[in-house]
Amino acid sequence: MSQQQTISTPSTADTSSKKMLTAMVGIGVICALLIVLVYDGTKERIEQLRAEALEKAVFRVLPGVSSSQMFELGADGVFKPVNKPEGKNPIVFAGYNDTGEFLGVAIEGSGQGYADIIRILYGYSPETQTIVGFYVLESKETPGLGDKIEKVDHFLANFTELSAKLTADFSKIENQIIPVKQGAKSNPWEVEGITGATISSRAIGNIIGESTATMVPLIFAQKESFKKNPDQK
């Protein structure tokens, strides 16, 4: 062992367990303090930014809206106003104008696109029974190609007055919304696609078609419950 003195062999087995414990826990405490500090410091601003982003999206899909309220679809098929989403139930946003008048509902939908799942938000007006707006929340579609669904005017124009009319007994959609290719739109419930971004644009048509088929009859049936803006109680 005498030769070992010359080199700085880090002592190994003799480090006391106590030292290790204190070191680890000490670092843990420092870390926890640091994280909490930053978390508390940024929490408010982050929540505010997020809310703004969401509101912006809701305002975009529901023209004329200036405030919104989150509703959750319960297992019993009834929409209830909530402040925070809980569990796995679908969420919709009711939109109101300056005077508190109920204008429509923003609904989230998602489905397989070209590259990955596309998440969208679209606005539905029970009044006119049409889709009145559309916004892509999240998409990984090919930039310059698939992302035309967020940019091309004639495609976005589809969603200013897209028919989601219900049957006479209001139990289901009369004509399900379907995608068609560019220049082939002949009915108000058809989504005209984009040449060159065929797959992505068709995906949007399908997502809205499927989403409206389930959500619209439910929303229409409970449209009265949205009319009261809880904020303006």
């Binding site: 087995a13 367990s17 290790m20 414990l21 070191a23 680890m24 826990v25 670092i27 843990g28 405490v29 870390c31 926890a32 303090l33 994280i35 909490v36 978390y39 508390d40």
Partner: peptide
Amino acid sequence: TIITALLALGGLTLLLALMLILAN
């Protein structure tokens, strides 16, 4: 939050340290 954080992280590191001591 501070208390939760301290408790949680403290517990976590404690666990980790114990394991490493054992392994060592």
